[in-house]
Design a protein around this nucleic acid. Sequence first.
DNA 1: ATAACATACGAAACCGATTTCGTGTTAACA
DNA 2: TGTTAACACGAAATCGGTTTCGTATGTTAT
Lengths: 336, 336
Amino acid sequence: MKQKITIKTISKELGVSTSTVSKALRDSHEISAETKERIKAYADFFNYKPNNLALQLRNQKTKVIGVILPKIVHHFFSTVIKGIEKGASEKGYHIMVCFSNESYQSEVDNLKVLSNGSVDGLLISVAKETLQNEDFKHLQDLVNEEIPLVMFDRVLDSIDCDKVIVDDIGGGYKATKHLIEQGRKRIAMLSTPAHVNIGVLREKGYTRALKEFNLLESSNLAIEVDDNSDLKEQIFKVIDKDIDAIFAVNEIYAAVAIRAIREKGMKVPEDISVVGFTDGLISEYSSPSITAIVQHGFTMGKQAVELLIDRIENESENLPPATKVISSTLNIRESS
Amino acid sequence: MKQKITIKTISKELGVSTSTVSKALRDSHEISAETKERIKAYADFFNYKPNNLALQLRNQKTKVIGVILPKIVHHFFSTVIKGIEKGASEKGYHIMVCFSNESYQSEVDNLKVLSNGSVDGLLISVAKETLQNEDFKHLQDLVNEEIPLVMFDRVLDSIDCDKVIVDDIGGGYKATKHLIEQGRKRIAMLSTPAHVNIGVLREKGYTRALKEFNLLESSNLAIEVDDNSDLKEQIFKVIDKDIDAIFAVNEIYAAVAIRAIREKGMKVPEDISVVGFTDGLISEYSSPSITAIVQHGFTMGKQAVELLIDRIENESENLPPATKVISSTLNIRESS
DNA sequence: ATAACATACGAAACCGATTTCGTGTTAACA
DNA sequence: TGTTAACACGAAATCGGTTTCGTATGTTAT
């Protein structure tokens, strides 16, 4: 990198002190008009730009927000990032993104680096491994150090900070209710293993809807999908239970379910309706297009970052942590 | 944020100088074993972590790489990011991600902020608007300042820096050749407007394949899709030209094409084969699943960042700029 | 003529680290 | 006993800015 021009360079060249240069560039009244002119002209000509690091160190703020995500190649999370970036840039902040890749150690490492002055605050969605480990010391430390922190999507009850979550229960309820209103009686659910929180919550909504319509006895066909064995085989078994609808905990399960149903010689939605969770490109462009619960990732990201910036800029107020719930909506398409 | 513990705090508390503390923590031989012990114990106990900003300012390097992308909610780009992050973290770097949202002004603004010392180098994929404007001053400035820069995917010939691109011509060629080998004779292509480079290049590959098999007269059915009017209508017109295959410039066009073909009462792949470009979730999970050119975004991101870090760490060598071409492969599925 | 004050600028501290260089103490050696 | 070297540590410069405070000069009021 070419040697950058600094205030010191300018001050030497023009025979003034660094304080004068600094003040002149910031248009201080302490400096005479002609001196200002001279300095500004010189700075302009040589394309002087103040060094960010120096400013950040001096001001004790970076205007950078750290974001730690479990993964990126995922429609929901990339939507969340977009929301975060939008909200951040609107308030003059930049974002520094790291990925835990669902790994506990990665999460800890990233946290350590980011929390050392590089950022003014952190946005975190916890890795799966961390959820399983149940070791949250790194996050508790953050809270203890009073570093502004907002958790989103995958949050921990035991950590005392602002949170933004999707209304998973409500989503599960809406999806199931929709199927019931379409006249479906035997509604299966493809859920996740119990340690993944979202599956549990969405299932809760599913059960609530069934209960409300007195279908708990006849329906209640939830299975926990095992990611380690073949997905389609597991779905085949569900189909064999003489069902007329499937509520899938995510888009991919829904897409694979449709394929499985067809392979069994049945039609969607005539024989079996399918509703997914997460409204991404698959739901939109597959044929038939898939009815799905929209998670509003963009809104979630934007709200999370706004909450965080609010914390950062109004530290003194010391308000108690808040939890925002982003409600989900149903996008009805061809599969139901 | 709670007042952070600094070297100065430690030095005051233990009655030694800051130099001693710094040296002790870095395990310098200049410091006696017992003093080291005392200082380390204290630092450990109060969870001392050196301030990143101070280090970065001192060392004149940040170990951060700036990334500017046109968009994020896009399978290809999120894959690229993943590759970038992987390559970066392997070498101890972090990434700072910004989005231009395809806007020229956004790109310029982001560039300005990042290039002021916050990062050691930059990775850029140019915004559409910038490509149209043909105003590349901001990028030329970067090169003039000798800030390490690697452009990827959407690159500019006129800027003298390292580049990583997808082999779009080869991809178009492979896709078309595959269709020809399946016995297709009248192959349509859904391309982009001429100012979008990728469409032009992929079309070049398409034409080359047709020429090679002497189908240029009979086939050569490329249309430029107009994003402002209805996509499906445009595809209907193409189908009416009595074609037996479609090569779509991206996944979405391919998915919509399949839907249009079905609505016309024809079958995929029996009546019309479809091949897409960009192998994302849509191609994988739609039914029929879509044969597609895999772009290897991950590889592209990883190679780009490795090229960049090489530049950063071996500045002195001053090698001439290189351009890497990531070759694409065909992933054959049900649609062809 | 002198006190009072505004003007225009510089010196120095500060943000939080690292590192070079200098120095006082002690031990070893001639 | 005097010289030298090793040891252990501190002072100060540095990275690139900002800001407080002090001060020389000129202007105005008394």
